[in-house]
Simulated assay, not measured.
Amino acid sequence: MAPVHGMDNFPEKSVILIEEGTGLVKSVYAQYIAAETAADGKDVSYLTPRPSDDIRSEMKLLRILPAKGFHIEEIHGTTPGALLDLLTLHGNGDLVIVDQFSLYFLDTPLSDLREGISRIITAAKNGRVFLLLVDRGVLPERHEALLHAMADGVIQVTTVPEGDKLKRYLNIPKMRGTLLSEKMLPFTIGDEGFLIDTRERHG
């Protein structure tokens, strides 16, 4: 079993999508990544429309709330342009996580989304990693396809009912500089943390 990433690490200076259908598993996954990154002595910015106290409570329950290096910023009623300015001009952090990223671009023309992602990619080249949490099916298909094409990596969280239980998997169809698995990676969230069974890679 391997912690969190399911790979050696995220590529440096990158923009990574973390996708899921309706649900909060991607947020929990991102919280574990944030905790692991902060534990390595790096600064993490977590931007979210949810109350910051809720995020802290969830991380305390999971016993992963970092003592330092982790900053939550609530973003409410933010326009796409203001969010992009926050990320690319004023934002801090070696790792920047944007929760529910897709919700801010519901009515954005495709050309504007392309320009916005280009701005984030340019900001990443200054030495930062951006994790954009996306709800599948919220944006039009062409917008989702554009995000996939422009991102350095795509991680998909999938929940599958199996009997009376739910099985959760990570699928990594794209990741710059990484050999990809042909299988989905099962993971669990429990007392030992967020654990990915990498043995499935070699089936």
Rank of each mutant, 00 (worst) to 15 (best):
S118G: 13
I33M: 15
T37K: 07
A35I: 04
A149L: 14
M184H: 03
I172V: 15
K167V: 02
L87E: 02
D197N: 15
T159G: 03
F70V: 06
M150P: 02
V15G: 02
N9V: 10
A2T: 13
P109R: 05
G163S: 11
S57C: 00
I117M: 09
L86Y: 07
S57E: 13
H148S: 07
L166C: 00
A151C: 09
T88Q: 01
E73L: 13
L95K: 04
G163V: 12
L166H: 04
Y32T: 00
E115G: 08
P186C: 05
E141L: 13
G77V: 08
D94E: 13
E12S: 13
E58I: 07
K42W: 05
A151P: 09
S52P: 00
A123L: 08
K125W: 03
Y46R: 03
D43W: 00
T37L: 00
M1T: 14
D191A: 11
R50S: 03
T108A: 10
L131G: 03
S45Y: 05
E162M: 11
K167F: 00
A124D: 04
L180T: 07
G6M: 10
V96A: 05
R114P: 00
K42M: 14
V4I: 15
E12F: 07
L84C: 08
K174Q: 06
A149G: 08
G6C: 08
E144L: 12
P80L: 06
H71R: 11
R128H: 12
V154F: 07
R142L: 10
A2R: 13
E74C: 04
T178S: 11
I55M: 05
L106A: 14
R176K: 14
L65R: 08
E115Y: 12
R136N: 10
V134H: 11
P186H: 05
M7D: 01
K174F: 09
T188P: 00
R176Y: 06
K60T: 10
A123V: 01
G69C: 05
P186N: 06
S27C: 04
I155T: 06
G21C: 04
M1D: 13
K183Y: 10
E12G: 11
Q156S: 13
R63H: 12
H202F: 12
L87P: 02
N9S: 15
D191G: 10
G203D: 13
L180F: 04
K13Q: 13
S57D: 11
G203Q: 12
D107T: 13
G69E: 03
D191T: 05
V129R: 11
D191H: 03
S111W: 03
I189V: 14
H71V: 08
R63A: 12
E192M: 10
V154C: 06
I196C: 11
I120M: 07
R114I: 01
L133C: 03
E58R: 11
G21E: 14
M59P: 04
I97S: 09
R128T: 12
V160T: 14
I72K: 01
G163M: 12
R136F: 01
E73Q: 14
V157P: 01
G23W: 09
L195V: 14
E200H: 14
F70C: 08
D43R: 05
L61A: 09
V157Q: 03
R199S: 15
R128F: 06
G153I: 07
A145M: 11
